[in-house]
Nucleic acid binder design. Structure first.
Lengths: 126, 126
DNA sequence: AAAACTGTTCTATATACTCTATAACAATTA
DNA sequence: TAATTGTTATAGAGTATATAGAACAGTTTT
């Protein structure tokens, strides 16, 4: 899994890391049951602070995507939350983006196609 | 158009305002050519600072959604950006959310339905 | 023409967030 | 036993958010 951090981005480093780990899982590059690197080694690889990686792991745990086992490691979880819970959380995030897309002149079909192409891209198990 | 600001949210007030104005435009509650309230009167209505509203307006202008005419007002624009430009910008924002939805166990069809239901809801001209 | 209002700009303050840097602890692992 | 693990604590620098007040020049209204 290739992680690219852009320090100058307005997106916090720990969120960039969280997003890219999620993408890695979606692509199947990491699977449920497997472990993420330790916060120290991962931080060294990325050239960032240990606490930054730690914050990302806790962000992933809050989303129910990994399980942090104290003194041991961070393990990818199988989906556990109910569909309704996930849908509700996703809906709030999607709403603003879709509204902006509509206002910016995108047609409904174009938005659906955009979503499809993204899902296709995320299904590539590299 | 009803604006609800949650001061305790982790989303900045000016972004909350930006998103809800965009939703208002998407719903047709405000149309292209019409003006937004002045930063001072809007701030007074919402109970926030003038500069917070001003920042929201500039955020909307950066997205190409309004045009700020100095000493005059903020006018809703008609979509002007190319489809490719908008698609590219939306794609980046959508990617993280869709990846999380997939990892959280949502099926492709369920995500498409979620997008559809959001677009239906945004089309209600209240 | 005068008054009110417009977005803009400037300074200032308080709070919170981000990121880095050390250090130490207790439990797991090699 | 030694190394590694996540955790916790403190500290500092830099940035972001939000508020507040003031002043300016152009626009709009009266």
């Amino acid at each position: 899994m290739i992680i690219k951090i852009e320090p100058q981005s307005d997106i916090p480093i720990y969120t960039q890391l969280t997003n890219q780990i999620i993408e890695g899982i979606a692509k199947g590059e990491i699977q449920a049951g497997e472990s993420l690197p330790s916060v120290r080694s991962f931080a060294a690889d990325l050239g960032v602070n240990m606490h930054t990686v730690n914050k990302s792991y806790h962000q992933l745990e809050a989303k129910g995507i990994i399980k942090i086992i104290p003194k041991s490691g961070a393990v990818i979880s199988s989906p556990t939350q109910s569909i309704d819970t996930v849908s509700q959380r996703m809906s709030g995030a999607l709403r603003s983006i879709i509204a902006e897309a509509l206002v910016s002149g995108l047609e409904r079909e174009q938005i659906q196609e955009l979503v499809s192409s993204i899902m296709n891209d995320l299904n590539k198990k590299e």
